[in-house]
Simulated scan of single mutants.
Amino acid sequence: MKLIQRITVGLAVWLSVSYGFSLADDVLPRSGAKNQSWATAPRYSAGIAPNPVQLEHSAIVQVYVAKTYGWRGMFAVHPWIIYKRAGETAYTRYDVVGWRGNDVVQRNYGLPDGLWFGARPMLLVNLQGQGVDAIITQIEAAIRSYPYAHTYRSYPGPNSNTFMAHIGREVPALRLDLPANAIGKDYRSISHPIGMSPTGSGWQVSLLGLLGLSIGIEEGVELNVLGLGFGVDVKQPALRLPFIGRLGMSSTTVSDTPGQEGR
């Protein structure tokens, strides 16, 4: 009983601390424009993506994540992936959007590195150079094989984070470490509760994304309770927390040559 009490108190402390950091980190466009709606929220380029014309001869893959719009931004994030093959001068973007009809997987819904309804995106993966074209082929196959292309539930999933986690599992070369506040990344159907973790480097057990455990080289150890992630990343020391996602060293995958990535 004492152990259960200690675990409960520990989780409560983690929740309080992470929620406080989330309040402090609230994005300025959302907090500074009281009359702003989702229709008027800025979605201009954040200036993060490399110029595809200048890098025409280089293949590029990037993954972004940004806080969701409104009050949900205190709890969750929205991810997307962009890429271009060598010889192309424009990016292709894919993400899952739940309000645009039955086909939730959207192509070029927004600018490659655009603000997500006022929230500035954060870069999770940046791959360039030799071998990236082959990774793009794998990404496109993963997009086609996404099992929930006509289903969307914001909580507990499947949603945009479920989509990106699927790509991460199918393309381990991305080393895609979605933050703990990517609610939906741990969603698994009731018939397949055990499998590869979203980073493609470990394993997880999860009951519909509501209760589970992930263990892997990239993500460390993360416990999922009602969609809230609590854990520790050992490889790049950090706490994995609800609301803020991560507190500690960055886990961004950066590489000029796949196979020689650095964090």
Results as ranks from 00 to 15, higher is better:
Tyr94Ser: 02
Val205Arg: 05
Ala33Phe: 13
Asp256Phe: 14
Tyr83Ala: 01
Ala173Leu: 03
Arg120Gly: 10
Val232His: 02
Ser255Gln: 02
Asp113Ser: 07
Arg169Gly: 05
Gly10His: 09
Ala41Phe: 13
Ser197Pro: 02
Ala149Asn: 01
Glu140Ala: 03
Gln138Gly: 03
Ala41Asn: 09
Tyr91Ala: 06
Arg107Cys: 06
Ile81Met: 03
Lys34Pro: 02
Asp233Gln: 10
Ile4Met: 13
Pro156Asp: 09
Ala165Ile: 11
His192Val: 08
Asn161Gln: 05
Gly200Ser: 08
Ile215His: 06
Asp186Glu: 14
Ser16Gly: 15
Tyr146Ser: 02
Arg120Cys: 10
Ile183Tyr: 05
His166Ile: 09
Gly229Gln: 07
Ala173His: 03
Val63Leu: 01
Pro79Gly: 08
Gly212Arg: 01
Leu115Glu: 00
Gly47Val: 06
Ala180Val: 09
Leu241Gln: 00
Tyr91Ile: 07
Tyr44Met: 12
His166Leu: 07
Pro172Gly: 09
Asn181Cys: 04
Asn51Tyr: 11
Gly114Arg: 06
Tyr19Cys: 10
Thr68Leu: 08
Gly227Cys: 11
Gln5Glu: 14
Gly157Trp: 08
Ala142Gly: 05
Ser154Leu: 14
Trp80Asn: 01
Ile136Met: 07
Leu241Cys: 03
Thr253Ile: 08
Gly200Gln: 01
Ser16Gln: 10
Ser22Leu: 13
Gly98His: 00
Pro112Glu: 03
Gly231Phe: 00
Val65Met: 10
Ser18Gly: 08
Leu3Ala: 15
Phe243Asp: 02
Leu15Pro: 01
Ser58Thr: 15
Leu208Pro: 01
Ile183Cys: 00
Leu213Asp: 07
Met1Asn: 14
